[in-house]
């Protein structure tokens, strides 16, 4: 068991990623991410790929989509539905927890 680590650097996650930065973070080629945007799975700001900026929420959503695509062989359209449903489940869980407290 390690000694307690020194106090970690805390940053409230508000970074924005360009397309090439997101490719590096996710370990995929641009085509993959462009396909995610085309299906509406992630929504960057900006009008064309060179100007796209992804916030942290989009980064996480992209990573989640890529994992599900890789691990469960979901096609992009199925993926979009699955992600929306997972978000809805999270929202409902939160509401349920609040209502029960």
């Amino acid at each position: 068991m390690d000694d307690p680590l020194p106090i970690g650097e805390i940053v409230i996650a508000t970074r924005s990623y360009s397309l090439s930065q997101l490719c590096a973070v996710c370990g995929v080629h641009a085509e993959r991410l462009i396909a995610l945007v085309a299906t509406g799975i992630v929504e960057p700001t900006g009008t064309h790929p060179a100007a796209w900026r992804f916030d942290d929420a989009a980064m996480h959503r992209a990573q989640k989509a890529l994992r599900l695509h890789r691990d469960l062989l979901l096609d992009l359209h199925g993926l979009a539905l699955v992600l929306d449903l997972l978000d809805e489940i999270d929202r409902l869980r939160t509401r349920l927890a609040r209502a029960q407290s």
Partner: peptide
């Protein structure tokens, strides 16, 4: 491995706030 972490939590958190500890 089990690892113990000390984290400083900033003011102004709300439900859903994400706090990033780099490299951990």
């Amino acid at each position: 491995v089990a690892r113990t972490l000390n984290a400083k939590l900033p003011k102004g958190m709300v439900a859903g706030t994400r706090i990033r500890l780099r490299g951990q």
